[in-house]
């Protein structure tokens, strides 16, 4: 905007930022902040696995020390070296676990933070392991050991970053909190997985196909709702009634398919699935065109139908 030229900050040459002076500090601090920031672009993703391995490898001389102590008949020395190595490995393991939890968190649009900040705890464990190695293995005195431990812990935090600490996702105007979205998504996922498990037991291939289409479409709908959860309250009802209905019907059919053969029940179940598939397609279409889901009527219709047929009583 050209009208704001009067508010421009004073000119600072690039060289001042690069080579120090008061103006260099903000840039350096921003770099540090970025290094610690949550890894939203996946830069750390692949690397944290390799790096935790490197850490364990770097601690392997402790294993040789344990063997050396064993050879010279020093049982305490051996136990110390082994314990220290285990301590390092435990820290690396915690960081790895924390990294995996962070990946799962990043993959979702709405997520609560991991219950324990494992990366941070892992970094502290690494620091403590380093300090103890200095104290009991290297024998360099308390102050140096603690300093070295603090340096290691700090370097580890810088390398691997903090764990996600806040719930992710925005609170929408309609008062839907990220937690509500997350719960609804998890519940719906569980139901879809239940349908898939029950469908695996169904012998008839065309029925399995229909169910596969329904579950795939449900996932599309979930993804859509996750992107724009403003209508979650009603969408949740939709997910619950439809998916519960599909789950119940599929389970019942799978259980009694062999008793009834190609009877009336097969036809009923198939037509129910066809209807469901059509409805799911419609809902998805509506979500795509950003129509509010006109659920209530359809829910009633389907609920009534599920009750009437109860396919399957």
């Amino acid at each position: 905007m050209s009208g704001e030229s009067g508010d421009k900050p004073p000119y600072v040459p690039n060289s001042a930022q690069r080579y120090g002076g008061a103006d260099a500090k903000p840039a350096a601090r921003a770099g540090l902040r970025n290094a610690l920031r949550l890894d939203t672009r996946g830069q750390r993703r692949v690397r944290f696995r390799k790096r935790t391995w490197f850490l364990v490898v770097a601690a392997t001389p402790l294993l040789f020390a344990a063997v050396g102590a064993l050879v010279s008949g020093n049982a305490i020395g051996m136990a110390t070296s082994l314990g220290l190595f285990a301590f390092f490995a435990f820290g690396a393991y915690l960081i790895r676990q924390g990294g995996e939890a962070e990946e799962a968190y990043l993959d979702r649009t709405y997520a609560s933070p991991p219950a324990t900040p494992r990366k941070l705890i892992g970094s502290l464990v690494l620091g403590a392991a380093t300090a103890m190695t200095g104290l009991f293995g290297w024998d360099i005195g308390v102050i140096q050991s603690v300093g070295m431990g603090a340096l290691a812990a700090g370097a580890s935090v810088l390398t691997f970053g903090f764990d996600p600490l806040r719930a992710k996702g925005e609170i929408s105007l309609s008062g839907v909190t990220p937690r509500m979205v997350e719960e609804a998504m998890t519940e719906a996922q569980e139901r879809i997985e239940g349908i898939e498990r029950a469908a695996a037991d169904i012998v008839d291939a065309p029925l399995r196909d229909r169910l596969a289409k329904i579950t795939a479409r449900s996932r599309d709908i979930l993804a859509r709702i996750e992107q724009d959860p403003s209508d979650l309250r009603r969408a949740r009802k939709f997910l619950k009634v439809y998916l519960d209905g599909a789950l119940e019907a599929t389970r019942k059919y799978a259980r009694s398919q062999h008793d009834l053969g190609d009877s009336d029940m097969y036809l009923k179940f198939r037509s129910l699935l066809d209807d469901m598939q059509a409805t799911f397609d419609q809902q998805h279409e509506k979500l795509l065109t950003n129509d509010r889901i006109d659920l209530d009527v359809e829910i009633d219709v389907l609920a009534e139908r599920l009750n009437r047929e109860t396919v399957l009583q």
Binding site: L32, A35, R44, A58, T60, P61, A65, T130, T159
Partner: peptide, 30 residues
């Protein structure tokens, strides 16, 4: 400073400390 560079440097420092401390422990025992 590039955050990636900071992370890499921090990692090198970390591995260096762990390795040196472990080696020193080995040397003490030896």
């Amino acid at each position: 400073m590039n955050p990636r560079l900071i992370r890499t440097l921090a990692f090198v420092v970390l591995v260096g400390i762990v390795f040196v401390a472990s080696c020193a422990t080995f040397a003490q025992v030896g």
